[in-house]
Design a protein around this nucleic acid. Sequence first.
DNA 1: AAAATAAGTGTTAATTAGACACTTATTATA
DNA 2: TATAATAAGTGTCTAATTAACACTTATTTT
Lengths: 235, 235
Amino acid sequence: MQKYSKQTRLLLAVDCIIFGFDGETLKILLIKRDFEPEKGNWSLMGGFVQANESVDQAANRVLTQLTNLQGVYLEQLYTFGNTKRDPLERTVSVSYFALIDINKYEAQLSKDYHADWFPLKKVPKLIFDQQDMVEAAKKRIRYKAALHPILFELLPEKFTLPQLQVLYESVFNTSIDKRNFSKRVLATGLLIKLDDKDKTGSKRGAFYYQLNKQNYYTKFQSFINILPNPDTLQV
Amino acid sequence: MQKYSKQTRLLLAVDCIIFGFDGETLKILLIKRDFEPEKGNWSLMGGFVQANESVDQAANRVLTQLTNLQGVYLEQLYTFGNTKRDPLERTVSVSYFALIDINKYEAQLSKDYHADWFPLKKVPKLIFDQQDMVEAAKKRIRYKAALHPILFELLPEKFTLPQLQVLYESVFNTSIDKRNFSKRVLATGLLIKLDDKDKTGSKRGAFYYQLNKQNYYTKFQSFINILPNPDTLQV
DNA sequence: AAAATAAGTGTTAATTAGACACTTATTATA
DNA sequence: TATAATAAGTGTCTAATTAACACTTATTTT
């Protein structure tokens, strides 16, 4: 089967940076690695690309393995290819980031995989060059969210404006005027106001909204400005 | 040397989409492939990642091989990993795009490599999934140039505002008011006006400018708006 | 009934962006 | 040597957008 003779074959892996939002902070899902090297240390969920699957399929497989979720937002991030990144054997890794609704993630899975959620500011030491992968993912999510409405992927079907605002404030580590925020968000035409309210956060309750899926998909690739001063952002 | 037993090893390639600007249109550099399969057909410059080099190094090696240029703007684009993309043997390819000053490219090299420049609208049929790579590169260059000053990488050290404007107009396939364009460009603080003029384009001559390298590097990651109506752009 | 709490909403000022046309420097030509 | 031709260079006004800012309302708890 080796038709290009004399060329080096090497291991190809995928690693997933899985983001979730618990209503307060942005977190990533890590597992305790269960094989050598670095067995027992915190790691991204990953795996080797198999002969019969595409790289995208490998990433999806690995993501579904850990989360049991289908149809999740998953985007290729960057390919890390230093020769020494895995000390055991040359392995190139294609990193992906995923945005999931943390409520759909079943806690039981964390027990099976010895997984846990970590706030971005409290990510433990990771194996190999995975710290770099997480940094790249943090940068990418901020960059992309400044221009496109990806953060909705982190929220449940129904969400309130205050929840959305906390999400943006948390991702961009800033505070936003709620009057301007609601004006900007509603001006996108991406939201549909529902009749019921979320009463968990306040006495008065906040109206639920849901995504206008049609507008969401058609406008997804355009530049959408929800953030104030996106130009001052170092991305 | 195979420490992760039972895992599939596969071929990893790099492919470069090399952009150049001849003063009129944006072009890419293609070569005639000199080995099977698809020998003799138009192809991106590429090569296999070797055991002792990183993926980035492989991309740089391949780029330098064809252009004999060092220190060129080279950015990882996307990793293409479908199982059947190379019919001969499973090969995953990490694509990169490069922006070079077309004047620094020596025509002699084109003879050695049977290479040629093609305007983006006249790119011939390419091997494998390289058409997709070129499409992705076109999208990326427009996306990035709408937000960051990468297009200067395509120009010589000294260039005029009319030249710069033609470049922007060509990349974005639009026409821009020259008064507004010069205001926007000069407002970035990226340019230094020189004392001499380019007289080739007109009787009066146009002043040369050069990049303020310091500002260029510090502001490179911020959002910089040179384009009018970037929000209406489908990127 | 009153107090407490977070949700919800509008206006004004400042800034930015977009539309628009004439003058100038220089060379070529009559 | 005067004139015509050509592309470079420049400024203003209007419209649109963005940013700053504070009070009222719905509801629950006490």
